[in-house]
């Protein structure tokens, strides 16, 4: 076997390995999808029959496989609300809101669930950046990212067209308008997307899960109880230390609670 033949067989072997890997990984993914479909249909049947607890377990199984879908999270919110677990319900609705912020059913159900929360919402001054990026709630995170990428691509394509030998492209008014429009959109949406990445990393919100929770002055069960929060209340999680979260409810209501008593959105 000469050297060229050796290289050929080696290359063929690597390509074959890649194809086999892709094939099997696809098979796994297909099998998972099929299993999820069965679980999903079963969960819907259980919900219709009024068996909300098993339905919630089924929906949760799908979520635990790594599926991040606003509609799935919405269904989890509905099911937990039917069980009477208000905290879990609002948690999943809030998670869904990040993915499908304009869904009218979600807004309706979340508003309904919020009316059941015992704690009256006190002022929670939104971060300045939240005010600046007020339009971010109109689009899902994914939409914002793709709008930024595509408009940015359009802007650079227009610039690239200037390099072509057709001089009229440079001077055409419509091309100029598109150039500035795409640049403006790209800037606005890229900044929004960067802010969202920042917020996801550094600004965390959580939902109180148990019926009633004592917020304490320190990181022990014997620390002074400062105030009580109830299931479904949304709090800002400022930081975490051992088994505790330091939470911010309003300007004068800050304290520590156990990590198991709140879940991050």
């Amino acid at each position: 076997m000469n050297r060229k033949t050796g290289i050929f067989f080696k290359s063929f072997f690597y390509v074959l390995m890649i194809v086999v890997f892709i094939y099997f990984s696809d098979q796994d993914s297909l099998a998972q999808t099929s299993e999820n479909s069965r679980t999903f249909l079963n969960a819907i049947r259980l919900y219709r029959e009024g068996q909300f607890k098993p339905a919630a377990d089924e929906f949760l199984k799908i979520a635990q496989t790594g599926v991040r879908n606003g509609k799935l999270f919405y269904n989890l919110g509905n099911t937990y609300l039917k069980i009477g677990k208000l905290g879990h319900s609002i948690l999943w609705y809030e998670r869904a809101l990040k993915l499908i912020p304009n869904d009218p059913d979600l807004k309706f159900n979340l508003n309904f669930a919020r009316t059941l929360v015992k704690d009256k919402r006190e002022e929670q001054r939104p971060p300045l950046l939240n005010v600046l990026f007020f339009w971010q709630d109109l689009f899902s995170e994914k939409s914002i990212q793709w709008i930024a990428i595509i408009s940015n691509m359009v802007f650079w394509l227009i610039l690239a067209s200037y390099l072509s030998p057709i001089p009229s492209l440079k001077t055409a008014t419509s091309v100029k308008v598109f150039k500035y429009l795409s640049l403006a959109i790209a800037l606005v949406f890229s900044l929004t997307a960067f802010y969202q990445y920042f917020a996801k990393r550094y600004i965390n919100y959580g939902i109180i899960l148990p019926e009633k929770v004592s917020v304490r002055s320190g990181l022990t069960e014997t620390a002074t109880e400062l105030f009580l929060l109830h299931s479904g209340t949304k709090v800002k999680i400022e930081r975490q230390d051992r088994d505790y979260y330091r939470i911010y409810f309003s300007r004068d209501k800050i304290g520590w609670l156990k990590k198991t008593h709140a879940a991050m959105i």
């Binding site: 999808t33 790594g66 599926v67 991040r68 994914k142």
Partner: peptide, 8 residues
């Protein structure tokens, strides 16, 4: 509802 809407 089973499609992944994972962000980039």
């Amino acid at each position: 509802a089973l499609e992944n809407q994972e962000t980039i």
